[in-house]
C-alpha cells in the first residue's frame, strides 16, 4: 500500500498489547477495538493483526497488489477510485486502486483491514456478497459506568447531576482522553491520593471539578480521584463519539459489565467463524 496523501492521524493499530505496564508502557491499541475486529474478520486476518485507524481528514492510499479489504467503524464515505463502496463488507481491489474518503457522515474513527491476495489477480473492484452489520452495538443508549473508588468524594447532588445530564465532548479531546464539558462537580473533601494505576475507561475527577475519560492512549498511572469507570463493552461505542457529540451516563453493576463483555466477545467469535467460512467457500467457488 502506497501513501499518496497523508491523513490527519492515520495509524496501523492492533488490539491493546498488555504486559509492560510496570515499565510505564501503556497497552495502547485501537480506540474502537470492536470495529477493528470486525474489519479483520471480514478479510480473514488474525485476531491480533493490525488495521489502519483513520480520522477525518484521512489519507489517500494506493494498493500495489491485488488486495482484499474491509472498512468498518466511522462512515467517512470511503471510495475506491472515486466510487463509493459499502462498509462492513469484503471488497477485492486490483493493483493501482486508490482508496480515499469523501466526507465524514458518522463516527470518529474508521478501520481499514487489508489482506494481500497472493493467489489471485483481481482485474476490477469486486464487492463480495456478504456483510456484517454492527448497528446493535453503536446505539445512542447511555454509556454504562461502574462507581470508582472515589465516587463518594462527590456530593450526592453532583452524583445525581452526572447521571441525569447530557455532556458534550470537548474539542481538546484526543486518543489519550476525552474531556467532558460540564458544570464543575462539587467535591466533599479535597483529600490527596497517591498515584496508582488507571485503565482505559477510568473517569478522573480533576481538581477543578471537571471530568476526563481515559481512552486507549492513556498513561499507566494517575494521581487524580477515580470517579467512575466506563464498562469495557461500551468503550468501542464511546470511541466513535467525538467533539461536540452529546453523551449520557448510567450506572450499572459488575455482573452486567461482565455479561455484556462476554456477549460482545461471543458475537465477535461468531463473526470470525462466519467470515472464515464465507471466505473459504468463496475461494473454493473461485478456483
Amino acid at each position: 500500500m502506497k501513501l499518496i496523501k497523508k491523513g490527519l492521524l492515520d495509524t496501523w493499530l492492533s488490539l491493546p498489547i498488555y504486559g509492560l505496564q510496570h515499565e510505564g508502557i501503556p497497552p495502547g491499541g485501537a480506540m474502537d477495538t470492536f470495529s477493528l475486529q470486525i474489519a479483520n474478520a471480514l478479510v480473514g486476518n488474525d485476531l491480533y493483526d493490525k488495521a489502519l485507524e483513520m480520522h477525518f481528514p484521512s489519507g489517500i492510499y494506493q494498493f500495489e497488489t491485488s488486495t482484499l479489504l474491509a472498512i468498518c467503524g466511522a462512515d467517512f464515505t470511503a471510495c475506491i477510485d472515486h466510487v463509493e463502496v459499502p462498509m462492513n463488507q469484503p471488497i477485492k481491489v486490483p493493483p493501482g486502486a486508490i482508496l480515499s474518503c469523501k466526507k465524514p457522515v458518522s463516527g470518529q474513527r474508521t478501520y481499514i483491514a487489508i489482506r494481500p491476495l497472493t493467489d489471485e489477480q483481481v482485474s476490477r473492484v469486486k464487492i463480495l456478497p456478504w456483510s456484517m452489520n454492527p448497528e446493535n452495538v453503536f446505539t445512542d443508549e447511555p454509556i454504562r459506568i461502574l462507581c470508582g473508588r472515589e465516587w463518594d468524594q462527590i456530593k450526592a447532588c453532583s452524583q445525581q447531576l452526572f447521571l441525569s445530564k447530557a455532556f458534550s465532548i470537548s474539542p481538546t479531546s484526543n486518543r489519550m482522553g476525552y474531556q467532558l464539558i460540564q458544570e464543575p462537580l462539587k467535591t466533599l473533601s479535597a483529600s490527596t491520593m497517591l498515584s496508582t494505576a488507571v485503565t482505559a475507561g477510568t473517569i478522573q475527577l480533576l481538581p477543578s471539578g471537571q471530568l476526563v475519560v481515559l481512552m486507549a492512549g492513556h498513561q499507566t498511572t494517575g494521581g487524580y480521584p477515580r470517579f467512575a469507570h466506563v464498562i469495557s463493552a461500551d468503550l468501542p461505542r464511546l470511541a466513535q463519539k467525538g467533539p461536540g457529540d452529546s453523551l449520557r451516563f448510567t450506572l450499572t453493576d459488575p455482573t452486567t459489565a461482565e455479561y455484556e463483555w462476554i456477549l460482545e466477545q461471543n458475537y465477535l467469535q461468531q463473526v470470525r467463524n462466519v467470515c472464515a467460512l464465507k471466505l473459504s467457500q468463496h475461494r473454493f467457488d473461485h478456483h
Binding site: 504486559g19 497497552p27 497517591l194 496508582t196 494505576a197 498511572t221
Partner: peptide, 11 residues
C-alpha cells in the same frame, strides 16, 4: 494481563 506496582498499591 498486567501487574502495575505504584507507591502503595499493586494493580
Amino acid at each position: 494481563l498486567d501487574l502495575i506496582p505504584a507507591y502503595a498499591s499493586l494493580t
